[in-house]
């Protein structure tokens, strides 16, 4: 059979490069996968960088004089600016008196997703597989399509679903504790006349679940799309290598430059999607309040 590029491309699926990689399975369940590793790694980064930044931002010793009120590091200053921006322009206008109660959750959510998104831009799995290939497959990673760490955890629908599930609990828990169960249920009628209650209640009830599902799908799809594009562009290099050195060089240069451009876009998307997830969670929390209509109106007016 002759060399059939489209068919081979169908097999060298770019998606296979961006999905999760197993590492340790038990009875078919992926107990430890690349995404598990990345989640753990990002947690470690969040905690250590967070603590470091907190120490830099916090008020220093008396002996420092006026300087003790100044953030001591540029990177910590950047984190501080993000925190202040999110609090003052996003969380506070929407949540008002509940700002301090929800800020830790919302900021943690933002930074956790952000670190995961950014880690996804580091080609950890590819580096591991290249090393494995250099060692002649001694690690058995490339051969088994396995990796202990790497990939993009927020590109895994189960991970985004899990985060959306937490957001779902917080959104509705906050709503019930704010309005009381009776009013929370009454809110399902949307203030509509009784004769369209069956319809409204159905729609509102579905909405409760659709909101977090949309959160999960949005993050998953946005992260996946960009990474598939990057994988596809790089895959052209691999495919072109079979067609001689001239093709390899030409396609290689174009693909590499494109990938660099897409990477800048992906950096932006990493921040944007972390923000959107956090922002919409805050919006949904704010919607389940006593003055639902006014609150909603002000949020819309603010944007």
């Amino acid at each position: 059979m002759t060399f059939d590029l489209p068919l081979v491309m169908a097999k060298i699926d770019p998606v296979s490069h961006v999905v999760n990689h197993q590492f340790w399975t038990y009875d078919g369940f992926w107990i430890w996968s690349a995404h598990t590793g990345n989640l753990t790694l990002s947690a470690i980064i969040c905690i250590f960088v967070g603590k470091w930044a907190a120490n830099k931002i916090a008020t220093g010793d008396e002996c420092e004089g006026t300087d003790r009120y100044v953030t001591k590091n540029k990177f910590a200053h950047m984190i501080e600016v993000i925190c202040v921006y999110l609090k003052d322009t996003t969380i506070k206008p929407m949540l008002g008196d509940r700002t301090n109660a929800f800020m830790p959750f919302l900021l943690s959510l933002f930074f956790f997703i952000l670190v995961n998104n950014l880690l996804g831009l580091v080609p950890i799995i590819d580096i591991l597989h290249v090393i494995d290939n250099m060692l002649g497959g001694a690690l058995g990673l490339a051969e088994n399509h396995a990796a202990p760490v790497g990939g993009t955890a927020t590109q895994n629908i189960y991970v985004t679903g899990a985060l959306a599930f937490v957001a779902f609990l917080v959104i509705n828990g906050a709503g019930i504790s704010r309005m009381g169960l009776g009013q929370y249920l009454a809110h399902l009628t949307g203030g509509a006349p009784v004769y369209i209650w069956p319809l409204i209640i159905l729609v509102e009830f579905m909405g409760i679940f659709i909101k977090p599902v949309a959160l999960a799908i949005r993050l998953f799809a946005n992260m996946t799309a960009g990474h598939v594009l990057v994988a596809t562009l790089l895959m052209f290099v691999g495919a072109a290598s079979a067609a001689g050195i001239a093709m390899f060089a030409g396609v290689g240069i174009v693909s590499t430059l494109s990938v660099i451009a897409i990477y800048f876009l992906e950096l932006f998307v990493a921040f944007l999607q972390a923000f959107v997830f956090m922002f919409l969670t805050a919006v949904f929390i704010a919607q389940l309040d006593h003055h639902h209509d006014e609150e909603h109106g002000s949020v819309e007016a603010a944007h």
Partner: peptide
């Protein structure tokens, strides 16, 4: 070939890990 969305067996533990870690 993997689907973009993994199977439940692939994703369940990872999802739970995500909740715990978060």
């Amino acid at each position: 070939v993997h689907g973009v969305i993994g199977t439940v067996k692939q994703g369940l533990v990872t999802g739970i890990t995500a909740i715990v870690v978060f």
